[in-house]
Design a protein around this nucleic acid. Structure first.
Ligand code: FES
Ligand code: FES
Lengths: 144, 144
DNA sequence: CTCTAACAAGACAAATTTGTCCTGTTTGAA
DNA sequence: TTCAAACAGGACAAATTTGTCTTGTTAGAG
């Protein structure tokens, strides 16, 4: 469904948000540990998230990553997904034709477009803050 | 969403069904041409489909692939997808945890499980015959 | 019987994704 | 001022997916 990079991106973003809600800044080392992701690879992804304005990076000693309350509220998962994976998952043809085109549809188009749309809406309606609150309540988990 | 191999598998299966409905057997060469897929790669996938009982292969001169009406009726897309891609797409965790587990869910579980389930149901409710009829009516297309 | 068209199967190659490592820069603290 | 902790960024490496090639087997047609 999502690439590994995208999975790490979402997990990392939620972890940064979780710490930021507690007033903590968090390092790559901790992100990798707490979200069970490969450290160096995750570091690259964090750069993309920072460049994309999903979160802030702070250099130097005691540096790390943090997210403002506003970023948590306004960042929808769809934004992270399209930043990392592009929007093929939202607009691509299920059978791999060059583009999805309702005027000359592939055999699966009618059925597929419905599900693809629900996925898109789900991701657009879900903010980082929404998911982070559950996480901090101990109702959900980033590693087992 | 699906792997390239899986996209080719579905396109090829529909194409074979389409020809079989017209009483024709179809060669790898024609499949590649008419569904716009790489020939040698598609050949490998056809072997998987034949071994999986999705369709028949006939060797020798004037050989090729064909599908019985029964195969078209009983083969659901979910079968092709799980044969080629496995069932990670039906059961896997959206954030990449080892397994989806509702008792210790990831932050996206509640939302994701709904969409994943609709995808599964859509693929389970769609047979090869369903899609092939539209294709033969000229309402849908396998290449543009 | 021989030739040819077609699938089977394994080895190989290219491309993409995933992951690592090293060097440089930033910044706080001793 | 110097040191250490942390991010930035590029080069590199491993793994996976995608795609090709070659050889063998099958079976119909002449
Ligand atoms: S054309 Fe294939 S999903 Fe729209
Ligand atoms: S635990 Fe992640 S989707 Fe179910």
């Amino acid at each position: 469904m999502f690439s590994k990079a995208c999975e790490y991106a979402i997990r990392s973003a939620l972890l940064v948000a979780s710490h930021s809600l507690k007033g903590e800044r968090v390092s790559i080392r901790d992100i990798a540990e707490e979200s069970d992701s490969p450290m160096a690879f995750t570091a690259k992804i964090m750069q993309q998230l920072a460049k994309g304005g999903i979160l802030y990076s702070v250099q130097g000693k005691h540096g790390g990553f943090e997210m403002s309350k506003e970023q948590m509220q306004t960042t929808r998962l769809s934004r992270i997904v399209s930043l990392i994976d592009g929007d093929k998952v939202f607009t691509g043809c299920g059978l791999g034709l060059k583009a999805c085109n309702a005027l000359k549809p592939c055999p699966l188009h009618n059925q597929f477009a419905v599900v693809r749309n629900e996925l898109r809406q789900m991701l657009e309606n879900t903010t980082v803050l929404d998911l982070t609150l559950d996480l901090n309540n101990g109702q959900t988990f980033l590693k087992r």
